[in-house]
Design a protein around this nucleic acid. Structure first.
Lengths: 223, 223
DNA sequence: GCTTTATTGATAGTATTACTATTATAATTG
DNA sequence: CAATTATAATAGTAATACTATCAATAAAGC
């Protein structure tokens, strides 16, 4: 079991899994396989049966790690926001100007992830696509409040708070930092999704990364 | 059948249903009942079986109107955007100042619906809550592109286009009117949802309608 | 080296969901 | 009155989302 202990990983709320997938080889295969399959099939068509076949295990074994595909998705999204927080820290420390820091943070949160390099067991490109297309489903459910009280959205909140703090540095009297940040995060996800699948809902643009630029400017004009 | 013809209703894409629910009493009960039940149970726990029991009919009869609960939800959302377009028109005609028109349109799109009066067969308060909590699920699916090509999102697009046109009146050179409008619409839905269920993600405010004010100001500062 | 324990695999089984099909009956329309 | 249509009643199927049991194996402790 020792060989799995020193993996680079974020501390993920242990109520989201039955058994820590980071503690075994099968667990790692569940995470890797689910990222592949959810990205490929969509959450609707993804099942634990298909996953278990994909990773050459059994349905019952997968159920020993996660009580449902919904919890598995929640785990992936928690991981994602842990990773994003880490990226924001990496890319904003040692920058004095809070406006510049805000621009950087918005870039991190709104840019398209195109390289998968940092973590062997996680394909960040696919995970980013999953978060864009599926993450809102983790809270658009009847028992949001219960899952909220279990801390399933805490990682997301931390990211929102961190960026809100930068906003308050720029304008200490600004009343709605959380609203602004979550509008930007969710908005950027929507725009990326629309741009790919329902382009008539967005504005055609040749610009290199119009979505990031749009939200950076929106935020700075607002403050 | 005649007695159902002169109901006030928006022209809804006929590919979304198998049989027009507006053409019969059972159809009307399906729509009314589904609004009650989806609002109450959430889409996840809503089934045609429960619906048919609720309206004292049978599962097979419901399936003659809609091929799936997903299509039924799509119908409701189409109706909602038809209604919102109508409300925008009602509340913006005869106003000369485009900035004032934009404020009004944003108010219509972001305010909480609290009275249910206009249409006998539709509970607008509940439908608004359904749209906030469930509408993104109509496009966050694997076959978005097919459903888009069938015109399932056309009503939403029309609303976005209508408001975009107001934006272009204010600033004819503005590059991202569609992005701005869809960011506002989806953002307001998120904020209302968060305010109710995950309040730590929003900003506590005593103000009467902070969400509407927030998005009105955001839009006007951006332009 | 042997026992205990933990991990996974193999298999089976259940309730519910998301449908489809068939037939009967009541209501409308021509 | 005949023909059509709408609905109800019933049955049935494949897939999903699980739960339970037991055996095989590998690792950990003594």
């Amino acid at each position: 079991m020792d060989r799995f202990q020193n993996r680079i990983s974020f501390n993920i709320n242990d109520k989201v899994f039955l058994k820590d997938p980071n503690s075994s080889e099968l667990g790692t295969k569940i995470i890797q396989g689910s990222i592949d399959l959810i990205e490929d099939l969509g959450l609707e068509n993804f099942t634990f049966k298909k996953l278990s076949q994909y990773i050459s295990s059994t349905e019952a074994s997968v159920y020993r790690y996660f009580e449902s595909k919904h919890h598995l998705l929640t785990y992936l999204v928690l991981w994602y926001w842990g990773w994003q927080e880490y990226r924001i820290i990496m890319r904003t420390t040692n920058i004095d100007d809070p406006k510049k820091r805000l621009r950087r943070a918005i870039k991190v949160l709104t840019e398209k992830i195109e390289e998968d390099s940092q973590f062997a067991e996680i394909n960040e490109v696919k995970l980013n696509r999953i978060v864009i297309a599926e993450s809102s489903k983790i809270y658009l459910i009847k028992n949001v409040e219960k899952e909220n009280s279990l801390g399933f959205f805490s990682q997301y909140k931390e990211v929102v708070n961190r960026v809100s703090d930068i906003i308050l540095e720029i304008n200490p009297n600004y009343k709605y930092p959380h609203m602004l940040v979550s509008t930007i995060i969710e908005g950027a996800h929507h725009q990326r999704y629309f741009a790919e699948y329902i382009p008539s809902l967005t504005d055609i643009c040749d610009e290199e990364d119009a979505i990031t630029t749009f939200y950076q400017n929106l935020a700075l004009k607002e403050l």
